[in-house]
């Protein structure tokens, strides 16, 4: 009996030692990959920052209004933000690779999943960035055009347009990463549809007289504006 217990203990110890001996190299390799990945990610971040500075990327963000939006959101400047995102993508890649090296059953196939996700994530970021740029440009253009045309509520109109374009960009980005696609699309469609329906009812039923007065005033003001250059030239 005692001998059987001893044999069981020895066998168990041998199995543990064998598994440990097999696991340690993998653990060491994973640790090296983890540390090396951190260093490489740091280097890549620095390279990206230098490259964007060389390209005068800050001028582009200033001109497009992106830097102002980031400042209002209490986020770092665009070039720092991009460098940080790149840093995390690179390091996450190495982390995933390190975890895969450990050959732990629940995490099998993680590397493949990660590298399938990264391009979609980058495209989503691109869609979001373009959405913000377009939204800002349209906001500025609409505000100026509305002011020039003498339309009331120019800032409200242009602000609403900016929010709408950003919302569309966010929905497209979420769809790209595949995050709760159905829910997001349904929520957006319902919200947008309800808003448009409400505006149509309010304007069509309740605002007819106001719309007529506004149009008449616009036409009259336009005729006056056409002949107002004489004292200035």
């Amino acid at each position: 009996m005692i001998q059987e217990i001893a044999d069981a203990l020895v066998t168990s110890w041998r199995n543990f030692a064998s598994a440990f001996v097999q696991f340690v190299p993998r653990l060491v390799a994973a640790t090296i990959i983890f540390g090396l990945g951190f260093v490489i990610a740091l280097v890549v971040r620095r390279v990206i920052q230098r490259f964007l500075a060389w390209m005068n990327f800050d001028r582009l963000t200033l001109r497009s209004g992106a830097s102002e939006m980031l400042r209002m959101a209490e986020m770092p400047p665009a070039e720092d933000l991009i460098a940080k995102i790149v840093f995390w993508i690179v390091w996450l890649g190495f982390i995933v690779s390190a975890v895969d090296t450990l050959q732990l059953a629940p995490f099998q196939g993680l590397v493949e999943e990660f590298f399938r996700f990264v391009p979609r994530f980058l495209v989503a970021l691109l869609v979001l960035s373009v959405g913000f740029l377009v939204a800002n440009f349209l906001w500025r253009a609409t505000l100026l055009a509305s002011v020039n045309a003498g339309l009331p509520g120019a800032r409200l109109l242009s602000g609403a347009l900016r929010v709408l374009v950003i919302a569309i960009g966010v929905v497209m980005a979420l769809e790209q990463v595949g995050l709760a696609t159905g829910v997001v699309l349904a929520a957006f469609a319902i919200t947008f549809g309800a808003l448009m329906l409400g505006l149509a009812i309010a304007f069509g039923l309740g605002g007819r007289e106001a719309a007529r007065s506004l149009l008449e005033e616009q036409l009259r003001a336009k005729r006056e504006r056409e002949s107002d250059t004489a004292p200035h030239l």
Binding site: N148, R225, E226, S227, D228, T229, A230, H232, L233
Partner: peptide, 14 residues
């Protein structure tokens, strides 16, 4: 010169 009958608005001119 006299500026009369101009179709250009002040905003456009500026």
């Amino acid at each position: 010169p006299t500026v009369t009958g101009s179709k250009t608005t002040l905003r456009d001119v500026v």
